[in-house]
Design a protein around this nucleic acid. Sequence first.
DNA 1: ATACTCCTAATTTTT
DNA 2: TTAGGAGTAT
Length: 816
Amino acid sequence: MMNGYDDIPFFEDEPPRQPANAPAGGIAARAMAARDHGREAPDYLAGLNPEQRDAVETLEGPVLVLAGAGTGKTRVLTTRIAHILSSGRAFPSQILAVTFTNKAAREMKDRIARLVGGAVEGMPWLGTFHSIGVKLLRRHGELAGLSSDFTILDTDDVVRLIKQIIQAEGLDDKRWPAKQFAGMIDGWKNKGLGPADIPEGDARAFANGKGRELYAAYQARLKSLNACDFGDLLMHPISIFKRNPDLLKEYHRRFRYILVDEYQDTNTAQYIWLRLLAQRPQGEPQNVCCVGDDDQSIYGWRGAEVDNILRFEKDFPGAKVVRLERNYRSTEHILGAASHLITHNEGRLGKTLFTDRRDPDDEKVQVHAAWDSEEEARAVGEEIEQLQRQEHNLNGIAILVRASFQMREFEDRFVTLGLNYRVVGGPRFYERLEIRDAMAYFRLVCQPADDLAFERIINTPKRGLGDTSVRALHDYARARDMPMLAAADDIVNSDELKPKARKALTDVVTDFRRWQSLLENTPHTDLAEQILEESGYTDMWKNDKSAEAPGRLENLKELIRSMESFESMRGFLEHVSLVMDAEQNEDMEAVSIMTLHSAKGLEFDTVFLPGWEEGLFPHQRSLDEGGRAGLEEERRLAYVGITRAKRRCHIWFVSNRRIHGLWQSTLPSRFLDELPAAHVDVAMPETSYGGYGRGGYGQSRFDKADPFANTYSTPGWKRAQENRNDATRNNWGNRSGHAVERVGYGESGPRSRTIEGELVAKSVAETPSRFEIGDRVFHMKFGNGNIAGIEGNKLTIDFDRAGQKRVLDGFVEKAR
DNA sequence: ATACTCCTAATTTTT
DNA sequence: TTAGGAGTAT
């Protein structure tokens, strides 16, 4: 199995005095040296607080570390590993340490390296669940019907594959979207369910009850492609371990210590995987340490089970639970606000963050109101400029939004201001079209059986191999059960194809033959360049006149450059399939803009939290789909947001926001009510009545608030509370038709009899509007205007002041 | 094959 | 509003 993934001896027996696989100067040796330096306690333990130290030093038996935000979680994990190594209890290769993201894995490696000095190649089993899964499958894949050079498909490949299967079943792929089914499969795999295990109801829910067959067909197809999706990287190891107890035993012997980061984010499959490896027969050592924070579980929507962390003590009887509650990050106000907010959740393990730091200069959490999102962005921009004048580093400032559409407004504003910003997250390098095309070429060279890659690039650039030829080739290949590239080689000698297509296909086949022959002896970056040149792919973009073409060529160069640090093309492909991220330049000083989700684990001096409005945050869809649990997850998200702040946390809400092109008035988030008055200032400066609100047009429900009041007892605030239950005002997530109908009629109007979304939506469209074209109307935000058009409950209005806008009819009234 | 038009749907995101 | 996909026309 020489695929260059690791050459670390697989199993070794008792650790000898001199670790065999840790060369002199290796990680363990260095760690020991570090230990010998200190007199009583090793250096690396110095500076830990008693709880952290407890978590680090309790090496035997199961340990659950409940680490609140900013309590030194990563420090505990890394120090614990250093401690295991330096006390000679295990080799680096005998420690299994699992993280969720590559970033976390990288950071952990770096920090261990810093702790014990030197490189950490000696930690072969530190990585994400998925990368460890790959490692296991490269070794034991044959036990699941995979050969060791299997390919890993990303979401895009998966969707295309499923689409083919849906079509092959003779189903309408529009009625049954492949994307949706891919999501369902992913969900099942997250739960550890194979085609045979899925609930009958789930199976029936898709494609006229064909869900189960489709899932099975998909798995069969993967097998014939010698491919895995992400879920399989967990599923296959699970089934291999279940079916091969002896093998599992070997791994029990191997992994003396198991550590899991972000345990609250584990899904059921990961949980099963972990239990297989960590739960040992009685009498055997069970040294598993899970670190997490139930209050920061924000990935329920993709299968994470908070329950896993909640029942740790049941799964591992006799477990020691260590709580880290001393926070080193934030001011007491920030902690007070966050802690109080999160107490509104039920079913917590319960922690209360505290800090010793008391500084009378620390500001409270600020709650600001703005008229609309534009003003929100403007005001935040001003605050940032203010901070900038006070010499604050922009890198210490972040704007954390609930949904990415909120980013645009801030970006626009910052561009106008000339303020440097960086969007964290967002579209990723390896997901770009040109990169994926190039990768498909590379994949096919390395993996001639990779049909998905083949289909992706067979007519890119255009070679005159359109649908007809590809379909013929596809059928030919399927009939003979052979990969498409091989089939292409075959079919060009027959007369199945038109001469033109046959010629084109022959050329492609010879190209790939040649590239394959060069694979072993040509430097892989050169070969990569050659492939892109000879295939005509770079020319395709050079001839492209569109604005983005030069950027794409630049990206391709970047791709080749990034291959340099890899041994081989195969090694590179493997890396990319698991690490879809490319690092971005951090050297520029800039404000960060990102979603709350991607902010987890980060910290900033100053944090802005815009968009705290009902419907957006908590998001209506979470509420609709998740009910109480959904609300609690949103609240945890709010908790994560606040606890990112070290010194300053400014929360904003607006009265009007444009959603899907329609202006809607909004209510302040219920989470604002859940903040403790003692740690919060409500600031409503007069500037928040700017825009159209000034000059007597808009009448905000906050407009009677005393701008200098610091409490929630202002009339405006109270009124907002009373309005909270006024469902007629809040029309978020209105795809159900239900909400659509209610809007515009108010409590006295006809109520909806919700049937199926589509039906109701139609009936709404046909319901005559209470307005007519030409009516004079008044709108809270835009003032007076004339109706120019009506589509169902959506009005197009020519406003005297604001120009033409589209609004929901619930927000206007007839002008008197 | 490419361009244009129409329709739909619209959180969060890792691997 | 807007982006992306699909379908139609040239």
